[in-house]
Write a protein that binds this DNA or RNA. Structure first.
Length: 504
RNA sequence: CGGGGUGUAGCGCAGUUGGCUAGCGCGCCACGUUCGGGACGUGGAGGCCGGAGGUUCGAGUCCUCUCACCCCGACCA
C-alpha cells in the first residue's frame, strides 16, 4: 500500500458497477451504460444504441435474417404510418393498442408570430385522417396483402420486415421496454388453418433455436393464456427466459391470427375448387429486448458476458511491455496474431493504446463482456506462448502460440455451452412445483423463478392470482404432458399445469 | 399517472444558519517516469450550480413554478 492507494480505490469505485445483490435494477443499468451498449437520449423513453450495442444487434439480425430466409421468407418494407381507420378494422387489435399509440395530427409547423425564433404547429395543416405511428404493422400489411393475394397459387405469402416501432409505454427501461424500439415482424398468409398454425409454431422453433444456438439461452416454449394473448390473435406462442433476479421475460412471440385480419381487411383467395375463402395468418417478432434479456441472463458483477457467437469482439489482444519500444514490438506481434485469428473468421481486436495500463484494459474488456482475452508480453514472445483468459469463468492459463486459432474456436464453443448450461441450471434450480396456493405464494415471494401449478383454465383465477401475488401465467409449455389435477386457487378440476412467474 | 429520490465540470460527489474568487476525486491536455490485474510526478484546461420567475444589499443555498432522469407501482414485447 502506498500513500496514494485511497485514490486508486476511489478510481476503481468510480468505474465499477453496482453488485446484483445490492440493487439488481441498478446493476442492469450500470451494465448497459458503462459497457457502452446504449445511452439515455434527450427524448423521453427513447435510447441511443451506441456502436457496440448496435454491432451486437447487427449480429443478431444477421443470424435471424439467415434463418428466416432458410425457412422461405422474404424481406419487404411497409410504412411507418398507419391511417387510424386501418387500425380500427380488427376490433381486438384496435382495443389492445389504442392506449399506447403516438398519433400524427398535423403535417406542418410555422414560425410563431408572437415569439421570435419559435415554431408552432400550423393549425391550418391538420390532417384529414390522423396517422398512427405503427405499434406493429398488421394493419398496413393486411391492407396491402389484400391486393397481393388472388388465388391459392399466391399462397403461402411469407414476408418479414426489419423496422422500428413506437409504443407509448408508461415506464421504460433500456432495451427491455423503450418507447421506440427495433424489431423484426414476420407476416404470413396461408391457405389453411393447419398450415398457418404450423408456420406459427415453426417460427417459434426458429426463435428457440436461435436463443439456444446463438444467445446461449435456454427458453421455455409455450402458448399464452387468453389474458396474455396478442391483441387480434387466436393463439400466441412465446419463448420465455428466466433471468437472474428470478423474473421471467418474454423474449419472442409468434401468433396464429386465424382469419381475424383476413376478415377485417377482406383478404380472400380462390381455392382449388374455385371458391372464395379467407386466408389464414400468422405474425411473429423479436426485438432489441433480446439484448436486455441476454444481459440479465448472463451478466455478472464484473460486467457483461456476451455469448461468443454474437459478441462484436470475440477476442481482445493486449500487448504488455516495459518500454515504448517494447510496446511497439509487442503490438506488432499482437497484430500478427490478430491476422492469424481473423483468417479463421474470428472477430479480434488489438488494444495497443499506450495510455492505458494492461490492468485497466483487463477490467475494461471484462466490463464489455469480450469472451476471450489474450495478453502478449515479452516473456511470451521468448517462450512462444500467450496468456489466455476466459470471461465467463474469469480463469486464465498460459498456452502455446502454435495452434491457437483452433484452440480458440474450441474454447468459444466451450464458453457457449458453458453459458447455456449455467443458465439452464439456474432455471432448473428456480423452477418449483407446488400443489397449494400457500406454497405458491411463499415461493413467489421468497425464491422467485418459475412456479408450476395446476390452474382451472379461467381468466378470473389467473387475474386473481396476479392481483394477489403479481405473478402471471407465462405460458402452458408445448412439450408438457397434460396431467389432470386440482387448481391451486379455486380447487376446481384442472386439465394442465401452468408456468407462473413475476415477469418483466 | 401516483409514491419516493436525484439534478453543482465529461463521470462520481462536497458545498454549514444566505456572504465576497464554487471545491474535491476520477477523467481530459502537455511533458517525464511507468506497463504480466484499474500506475505516478509536475504543470494545465474545463462551471449560466437543470430551467424560469421571485425574496434579498447579496442566492448553489430561501420561496413558487417547471423540466429531466432514477427507483417502486398501475400498462405492456
Amino acid at each position: 500500500m502506498t500513500a496514494h492507494s485511497p485514490n486508486k480505490n476511489k478510481a476503481f469505485e468510480a468505474s465499477s458497477i453496482t453488485p446484483r445483490q445490492k440493487d439488481y435494477a441498478q446493476w442492469y443499468n450500470d451494465l448497459v451504460l458503462k459497457s457502452g451498449l446504449a445511452d439515455y437520449s434527450a427524448v423521453r423513453g427513447c435510447m441511443v444504441i451506441k456502436p457496440y450495442g448496435f454491432a451486437l444487434w447487427e449480429n443478431i439480425q444477421r443470424q435471424l435474417d439467415r434463418m428466416f430466409k432458410e425457412t422461405g421468407h422474404q424481406n419487404a418494407y411497409f410504412p411507418l404510418f398507419v391511417p387510424k381507420s386501418f387500425l380500427e378494422k380488427e376490433e381486438g387489435h384496435a382495443e389492445g393498442f389504442a392506449k399506447e399509440c403516438a398519433v400524427v395530427t398535423h403535417y406542418r409547423l410555422k414560425t410563431d408570430p408572437e415569439r421570435k425564433g419559435k415554431l408552432i404547429v400550423d393549425p391550418e395543416a391538420r390532417l384529414e385522417e390522423e396517422l398512427v405511428v405503427r405499434p406493429t404493422s398488421e394493419a398496413v400489411i393486411w391492407n396491402t396483402f389484400k391486393s397481393w393475394i388472388r388465388s391459392y397459387r399466391d399462397l403461402p405469402l411469407l414476408i418479414n420486415q426489419w423496422a422500428n416501432i413506437v409504443r407509448w409505454e408508461m415506464r421504460t427501461r433500456l432495451f427491455l421496454r423503450t418507447t421506440e424500439f427495433l424489431w423484426q415482424e414476420g407476416h404470413t398468409a396461408h391457405a389453411s388453418r393447419e398450415e398457418a398454425v404450423e408456420e406459427a409454431r415453426r417460427m417459434l422453433q426458429v426463435y428457440a433455436d436461435f436463443a439456444e444456438q446463438w444467445l446461449a439461452l435456454p427458453v421455455l416454449k409455450g402458448v399464452k393464456t387468453a389474458a396474455e394473448r396478442f391483441a387480434g390473435a387466436e393463439d400466441t406462442y412465446c419463448i420465455e427466459v428466466l433471468v437472474q433476479d428470478g423474473k421471467a421475460i418474454q423474449a419472442g412471440t409468434s401468433h396464429f391470427l386465424g382469419q381475424n385480419f383476413a376478415k377485417a381487411f377482406e383478404v380472400t383467395f380462390t381455392n382449388r375448387s374455385n371458391q372464395q375463402e379467407y386466408v389464414w395468418a400468422t405474425s411473429w417478432g423479436v426485438s432489441t429486448r433480446l439484448i436486455g434479456t441476454l444481459i440479465m441472463a448472463h451478466g455478472d458483477d464484473h460486467g457483461l458476458i456476451l455469448p461468443p457467437r454474437l459478441a462484436p469482439v470475440q477476442v481482445v489482444i493486449i500487448p504488455i511491455a516495459r518500454s515504448n519500444d517494447q510496446l511497439q514490438q509487442m503490438a506488432q506481434a499482437a497484430r500478427q496474431l490478430q491476422a492469424e485469428l481473423a483468417a479463421q473468421d474470428l472477430r479480434v481486436m488489438v488494444d495497443d493504446d499506450p495510455q492505458q495500463k494492461p490492468g485497466w484494459k483487463f477490467t475494461e474488456y471484462e466490463l464489455r463482456g469480450v469472451p476471450v482475452r489474450l495478453a502478449l508480453g515479452p516473456r511470451d514472445l521468448e517462450n512462444g506462448t500467450v496468456e489466455l483468459a476466459r470471461r465467463d469463468t474469469m480463469t486464465k492459463e498460459t498456452v502455446p502460440l502454435g495452434g491457437l486459432p483452433a484452440r480458440i474456436k474450441i474454447l468459444l464453443d466451450d464458453i457457449h455451452r458453458s453459458l447455456y448450461a449455467r443458465a439452464l441450471q439456474f432455471r432448473e434450480q428456480h423452477t418449483t412445483y407446488v400443489t397449494t396456493y400457500e406454497a405458491f405464494k411463499k415461493v413467489i415471494e421468497e425464491k422467485g423463478g418459475f412456479v408450476v401449478a395446476h390452474w382451472d383454465g379461467t381468466t378470473e383465477t389467473e387475474l386473481a392470482i396476479k392481483e394477489e401475488t403479481k405473478a402471471t401465467i407465462r405460458c402452458i409449455p408445448l412439450d408438457q404432458q397434460p396431467v389432470p389435477g386440482t387448481c391451486i386457487y379455486s380447487g376446481k378440476p384442472s386439465q394442465q399445469q401452468a408456468w407462473f412467474a413475476v415477469a418483466y
